[in-house]
């Protein structure tokens, strides 16, 4: 477009001099190559993990798999230890995401409307779980939960995972709020809506994408969290990542290959949800 415009203008201005116009917005070859390499680097593990799930029920892992079978998936779905841990992970993930998105949204909205520097400080404090090494979090949570008898229980898992999921909600809701026009709340108040009604009818719908994105990230974070889960586990309550860990340390069970494939597929599908939602809206 820009090139055409340039051409017409030169043609009008002076007798045609041979002008070679280079497209300026082109992405250089080296950058394309680099991007491709980085892309492959990120995706390759997936292409190894998924085929391995379809390998035979041997006790050693091999790539590429020597045979094709669904034996490992069959194991996964019939063995109560595996399928049960998937259910528990899903339950913990959903509840942790609910708790994290409730409290994360409340925190983000509250901090957004507070004046002064305090909000920045509090936001930074709330982000700390993101940068704390998991083992430190895990040990501290374990020690505190022992006193409160929360280890090995559903509430314990939910509380711990909600805490590490909350920063994601905080970030995505804060981002959504940055484009939120607070005059709308004056409008709704002048029209008779109490602050709570204003939140329900105006703020929440307009930041729902941010809340949704945060909740998905919180779910995924909980779903594949292993360090804290290892500390909190009990014989009665084990999440999928703990079961996977056990399967290669306590016993050698190659069902882990199938469960890894499943994990990758589930997490990818979940992270694709926002993309699909957006594509549907624009079409």
């Amino acid at each position: 477009m820009a090139a055409t415009l340039g051409e017409t203008r030169t043609a009008q201005a002076a007798p045609p001099k041979k002008l070679k116009i280079k497209p300026v917005d082109a992405i250089p070859l080296w950058l394309r190559t680099l991007a491709a390499i980085v892309g492959v680097y990120f995706i390759l593990p997936t292409f190894i993990v998924i085929p391995m799930g379809f390998g035979g029920a041997t006790t050693t892992f091999k790539f590429p798999p020597e045979e094709f079978s669904v034996k490992l998936f069959e194991n996964f779905f019939t063995n109560p230890a595996w399928i049960g841990s998937l259910g528990k992970s899903a339950l913990v993930g959903v509840l942790a995401a609910l708790v994290a998105s409730t409290f994360g949204t409340a925190a983000a909205v509250g901090l957004h409307f507070l004046p002064g520097r305090l909000p920045t400080l509090v936001r930074t404090l709330l982000m700390i779980p993101l940068v704390t090494p998991s083992i430190i979090l895990a040990v501290s949570i374990y020690v505190s939960f022992l006193q409160w008898h929360l280890t090995g229980s559903l509430p314990g898992y939910v509380v711990a995972h909600a805490a590490i999921g909350l920063p994601y909600v905080l970030v995505s809701v804060t981002a959504a709020l940055s484009s939120f026009d607070s005059t709308l709340l004056r409008a709704s108040a002048s029209l008779g809506a109490s602050p709570w009604r204003s939140f329900v009818t105006v703020t929440a719908p307009l930041i729902s994408k941010g809340i949704g994105t945060g909740a998905l990230f919180a779910f995924v974070t909980s779903f594949d969290e292993v360090v804290i889960a290892l500390y909190l586990r009990s014989p009665m309550f084990q999440t999928l990542p703990v079961q996977m860990y056990n399967s290669v340390t306590v016993e050698i069970d190659s069902t882990i290959a199938a469960s890894s494939s499943l994990m990758v597929i589930i997490v990818s599908l979940i992270l694709f949800i926002p993309q699909f939602a957006r594509a549907k809206k624009t079409s």
Partner: peptide, 27 residues
């Protein structure tokens, strides 16, 4: 403010962007 029963008009209109004209006026 929500108990004062006053209407207000703003320079930037402050319409609820996620609601139709009807829903805005019915609010």
């Amino acid at each position: 403010p929500h108990k004062r029963n006053l209407g207000m008009l703003f320079q930037n209109y402050a319409l609820f962007p996620h609601m139709s004209v009807y829903d805005n006026v019915a609010y």
